[in-house]
Computed example of a mutant assay.
Amino acid sequence: MRFAALADIHGNALALEAVLADLERQAITDVVNLGDVLSGPLDPHTVAERLIPLGWPTVRGNHDRYLLEQNPSQMGPTDAVTHKALAPAHFDWLRTLPFSLVPFEGVFACHATPLTDERYWMERVEPDGMIRQATLAELHAELDGFSSEARLLLCGHTHIPRLVRLSSGALLVNPGSVGCPAYDDVVPVPHVMQTGTPNASYAILQKTNGVWDVTFRSVPYDHDGAAAQARGYNRESWAKGLESGWL
């Protein structure tokens, strides 16, 4: 079995096209999408038109949910821009997305954790805003009340490519973000998540003789063009992160 996992496209059509081209070069035909697909002050309409016909198994991210549940007048600036750009058919597609799914036997996919689409699984934010890797105990705490025989667990949400092995031997993989390499947030306290590269990220997963092999891909693309799109919406923090991977 061989497939790709990607997450957090965030309306970045230029990054998505680069990843699609790389998938073709890698001869990957099966892809799992881990959510937060459209929300971004970039080109969400083009992302929707390009991606929906591909029919990839896709889970619903927290921003996918916000686009459906929140009143546009109460949305944050990124979701508000996205909501205005989308067509009714795009919202219909978002409504079909499940919270989690099992795309292949022994593989579980969610956006953030098996229990919520808003909490970090593989990272923790300290009270002073510093980011650290979650401990093994903290990783397992996110599985409380969740039962699965999966040996490969996939998540996104934090945009940081990472792989850990749990006590059970199962692998937990975050493929990183296709379209947003750095962002800031105020929950639980003000903090910054940043990869330090403007490249689009995804992962290739291959099972051979019962063992999963994971390859992280870092794909260059026209990130300056994406940054210009963000500036067109007066989103300088997005533009800075897209240009460099740093905030």
Score class of each variant (00 low, 15 high):
Arg50Val: 10
Gln74Asp: 04
Gly40Ala: 02
Leu42Gly: 02
Pro44Arg: 05
Val47Glu: 00
Pro41Lys: 01
Gly76Trp: 10
Gln74Trp: 02
Ala87Val: 10
Asp79Tyr: 03
Pro53Lys: 10
Thr46Ser: 15
Val81Lys: 07
Asp92Cys: 11
Ala80Ile: 00
Leu86Glu: 02
Pro53Leu: 07
Asp64Glu: 14
Ala87Leu: 15
Gln70Asn: 09
Val59Cys: 08
His45Val: 03
Gly35Phe: 04
Ala87His: 14
Tyr66Asp: 14
Ser39Ala: 15
Pro72Tyr: 00
Gln70Met: 06
Leu86Gly: 01
Pro53Trp: 06
Phe91Asp: 12
Leu38Trp: 02
Glu49Arg: 14
Pro44Phe: 03
Leu51Trp: 06
Leu86Phe: 08
Asn33Val: 01
Gly61Trp: 04
His63Gln: 12
Ala89Glu: 15
Pro72Trp: 01
Asp22Ala: 11
Asp22Asn: 07
Ala21Gln: 14
Gly35Met: 06
Arg65Asn: 09
Leu42Glu: 01
His63Ser: 14
Phe91Glu: 13
Leu38Ser: 03
Gly55Ser: 03
Asp92Val: 03
Asp43Tyr: 04
Thr29Val: 13
Glu24Ser: 15
Leu68Cys: 13
Gly76Met: 10
Leu54Met: 14
Asn71Gln: 13
His90Thr: 07
Asn62Val: 10
Asp64Gln: 13
Asp79Arg: 05
Val47Asp: 00
Ala27Thr: 06
Leu54Ser: 08
Thr58Met: 12
Ile52Glu: 06
Val32Cys: 01
Asp92Trp: 04
Asp36Val: 04
Gly61Met: 09
Asp79Ala: 15
Ala27His: 14
Leu42Ala: 08
Leu68Trp: 09
Arg65Asp: 11
Leu20Gly: 01
Gln26Lys: 13
Val31Cys: 04
Gln26Leu: 12
Val37Gly: 03
Ala48Pro: 01
Asn62Thr: 11
Gly40Met: 01
Asn71Arg: 14
Asp36Leu: 06
Val32Leu: 04
Ala87Ser: 12
Ala89Cys: 11
Leu86Gln: 07
Asn33Ser: 09
Asp64Cys: 09
Thr46Pro: 05
Glu69Ala: 09
Glu49Gly: 03
Gly76Asp: 14
His83Cys: 07
His90Met: 09
Thr29Tyr: 11
Glu69Asn: 09
Asp64His: 10
Thr29Asn: 11
Glu24Met: 15
Gly35Tyr: 02
Leu86Ile: 06
Leu23Thr: 13
Leu54Val: 07
Met75Tyr: 03
Leu20Asp: 00
His63Arg: 15
Tyr66Phe: 14
Arg50Asn: 12
Glu69Arg: 11
Val32Ile: 08
Leu67Met: 14
Asp36Pro: 10
Asp79Trp: 05
Arg60Ile: 00
His90Cys: 03
Asp36Met: 09
Glu49Pro: 00
